[in-house]
């Protein structure tokens, strides 16, 4: 997994790239969680994520819950077909913010 973080109008945009599995979830959390803890709105761009497993979905849930707790939000953007399928399999499309 590789990533890039940009800032636009006070919104942190995290572009994730590659495959997100158990082996990289800690790294993903290290990137995303400090932004949420700084109470920034975070957009996760998932266009280039070709594979995500249950560990990756757990990062999305944790991020969403942490953001809600701190009064901000995480929005999933440009979700790749394969990631959307896993989100739907987990029946989370009504829970997570899909933008």
């Amino acid at each position: 997994m590789s990533y890039k973080v940009t800032e636009e109008n006070g919104i942190s945009i995290v572009h994730l790239d590659g495959e997100i599995d158990m082996d990289v979830t800690e790294k993903a959390k290290e990137i995303i969680m400090p932004l949420i803890e700084a109470k920034k709105e975070v957009h996760l761009n998932l266009k280039e994520v070709q594979y995500m497993d249950s560990s990756g979905i757990s990062v999305l849930i944790e991020s969403h819950q942490k953001a809600t707790e701190l009064g901000t939000k995480v929005i999933l953007k440009d979700i790749s077909k394969s990631v959307l399928k896993v989100i739907m399999m987990a029946k989370l499309e009504q829970i997570l913010n899909l933008g």
């Binding site: 497993d53 249950s54 560990s55 979905i57 757990s58 990062v59 849930i61 944790e62 819950q65 896993v86 399999m89 987990a90 029946k91 989370l92 829970i95």
Partner: peptide
């Protein structure tokens, strides 16, 4: 449980699906 939104427990759910 599918209405219990929390991290974890999803892998087995996926396998069974």
């Amino acid at each position: 449980k599918i209405d219990d939104i929390k991290p974890g427990g999803l892998g087995t759910f996926f396998i069974q699906q």
